[in-house]
Amino acid sequence: MFAAAAIAIIITMVLALIRGFIGPTLYDRILAVNMFGTQTVLVIAILGFMMGRPDFLDIALVYALINFVGVIALLKYFKYGSLSIGPGEERNTEKSSHMDKS
């Protein structure tokens, strides 16, 4: 039962890896990385049950959080071109923002 689930997850991991390698656009790659992180969480959970240690589930949950932070950083970079700018702010290179700040 767990072995079948593990095999299925590994097949999806292969598919995500292939998409990450060849992905023509960067969004394909972001999705591949995000999905690969989710697959890792599932693999750790399945391994926990296979090895008779269901407390691995907590660790899998924390992995999901880390994965989320990484993807948010990537998407923020794509949206704003920098990590230090938040929503509603312009890039520092534009003249108008300098004038406004001074």
Binding site: L17, G20, G23, V33, T40, I44, I59, G70
Partner: peptide, 30 residues
């Protein structure tokens, strides 16, 4: 793409550490 594949590599390494029962090391790696 290299940075993203690096993230995938780290997740794989963390999975290996979990299989080897070194959960704390896996956690640091991830």
């Amino acid at each position: 793409a290299v940075v993203m594949l690096g993230g995938i590599y780290s997740l794989l390494a963390a999975s290996i550490f979990v299989v080897m029962d070194a959960v704390d090391v896996a956690f640091t790696e991830a």
